[in-house]
């Protein structure tokens, strides 16, 4: 697979030279591949937010490099600026960054900064709005009149409108009701499929990431202890729990079943897989009797 973003020995130290100095990232080698759906998990303060802010050049590494499509994003000022459009970053609670009079203008903020033509801006705004399921009527409303879930979608559309080849979202479903969570996740999935975009989703909900991502990266104490397919990562149940994380509930149940001596495939992490694994184990046992 072709790497789209890479970090080499990336370190970041906050408040260097004050009593509050601390290393948020230490020698991190991180890779995201083109077109993959990647999850980053880590508890609060693990350094995951710091990591993603390096990927689009918002934070400058204290040491180490960040490469986008093989080129150092800090090489020239222009490249750093361009990287911000290529690597779209949606912050936590992005609805708090809305500022324009209308939803349309707010979504157009990014494309306008890219100095695109009016026609192109219009196309992108409408397409982005469609991705997140905002109707044309909403486009002319003030963003401050919308509901929380709608505001969130406007903010995400604001980033999608730049048509980034990598879309990073920091806890995009935090504080939403279950329906809102489903909607946002499926909106993101639509964008992933339609543009073959790389998606990086940051979360601390194991269930949520386990369902959606191809690959998982665990961040703990400014380092990456594990990375790989969800089933590989979830095999480290004890270490994950020690980091204040954990594994999805179904994985935990099956790990426990295996410990009790049931011959069951415990590398699963979704309800459907678990059902299949349990049924298989049940049939095998019945056949053996």
């Amino acid at each position: 697979m072709e790497a789209i973003i890479q970090t080499e020995k990336l370190s970041h130290i906050y408040s260097a030279g004050t009593p509050f100095e601390h290393g948020a990232l230490i020698d991190v080698d991180f890779t995201a591949y083109r077109g993959e759906y990647l999850g980053i998990i880590g508890h609060t303060g693990s350094g995951k937010s710091t990591l993603i802010q390096h990927l689009n050049g918002l934070l400058k590494p204290t040491s180490g490099r960040v490469l986008f499509e093989g080129k150092d994003i800090w090489e020239t000022k222009e490249r750093t600026h361009q990287t911000r459009f290529q690597v779209g970053l949606v912050f936590q609670y992005p609805e708090y960054q809305l500022f324009e009079e209308t939803v349309y203008k707010d979504i157009a903020f990014g494309p306008r900064n890219m100095k695109l033509s009016e026609a192109e801006i219009d196309r992108r705004v409408r397409e982005a709005a469609a991705f997140v399921g905002l109707s044309d009527a909403i486009l002319e409303q003030s963003p401050f009149e919308l509901s929380g879930g709608q505001k969130r979608r406007v903010a995400i559309a604001g980033v999608i409108a730049m048509e980034p080849s990598v879309l990073i979202l920091d806890e995009p479903t935090a504080g939403l009701d279950p329906v809102g969570v489903e909607n946002i996740l499926s909106n993101i999935h639509d964008y992933h499929v339609a543009k073959n975009a790389t998606i990086i989703i940051v979360s601390h909900s194991m269930e949520e990431v386990a369902r959606t991502v191809d690959r998982l990266v665990v961040v703990n104490d400014g380092r990456i202890p594990f990375a790989g397919a969800p089933c590989e990562v979830f095999a480290h149940e004890e270490e994950l729990i020690a980091m204040g994380l954990g594994v999805p509930q179904v994985t935990r149940v099956l790990h426990q079943l295996k410990k009790l001596g049931v011959d069951v495939d415990d590398t699963v992490y979704t309800m459907e897989q678990a059902k299949a694994a349990v049924m298989a184990a049940y049939r095998a046992r019945k056949g053996a009797v």
């Binding site: 918002l58 600026h81 949606v90 992005p94 960054q97 903020f109 900064n113």
Partner: peptide, 13 residues
């Protein structure tokens, strides 16, 4: 700081 970062991520200068 947060809002600045968010707007910079959308290309604000």
């Amino acid at each position: 700081d947060k809002i600045m970062s968010a707007q910079k991520a959308r290309g604000a200068d």
